[in-house]
Design a protein around this nucleic acid. Structure first.
Length: 145
DNA sequence: CAGTGTTCAGGAT
DNA sequence: ATCCTGAACACTG
């Protein structure tokens, strides 16, 4: 299992991966820089639309959460989707989608920042500022809330 | 058991 | 028009 970290907007982004499978992505306030997959660096720099070539371990499995993560992965770069819409497509409740996002082991790979509330921005761990920064990269209009 | 990164309908201001 | 109340839901401590 390889581990690395890069900086982004006052945060350290720690990545654990092996080959093309990403096991964990975490945002931390402090850390040490170490090599991470270049696709992630390019994405964070706003030079590519999305993160090609990498997949999250969380999309594998038969649980409801895995189904939610797969559905979220289909949301196109630069657009947003609501908790309710995802819930309807998976066949579960909006709250469960929110819970799945909160426990998302691999943000960025699974674009949980593209999931917003029906009215407003919704939440984000560890901070909504980070969510806005990510949407900013993708050029997403933060429409009126 | 309680609590979540929600949402919607229904009713009262 | 806004503000409040409940209910549905899949997991985790």
């Amino acid at each position: 299992m390889r581990e690395g970290a890069c900086r982004f907007d006052l945060w350290y982004v720690q990545v654990n991966w092996e080959g093309s499978t990403v096991y964990r992505v975490r945002f931390m306030k402090s850390g040490q820089e170490a090599p991470v997959p270049s696709a992630i660096l390019r994405y964070l720099a706003g030079r590519t639309r999305g993160i090609p070539g990498l997949s999250s371990i969380a999309t594998k499995g038969s649980s409801v959460y895995a189904a939610i993560y797969r559905e979220v992965s289909l949301v196109p770069y630069g657009t947003t989707c609501t908790y309710g819409e995802v819930a309807a497509r998976v066949g579960t409740s909006p709250r469960t989608v929110g819970q799945a996002m909160a426990r998302n082991p691999t943000p960025l790979i699974i674009p949980c920042h593209r999931i917003v509330a029906s009215r407003g921005l919704g939440g984000f761990t560890p901070s909504v500022e980070l969510k806005m920064a990510l949407l900013e990269i993708e050029g997403t209009r933060k429409k009126e809330m």
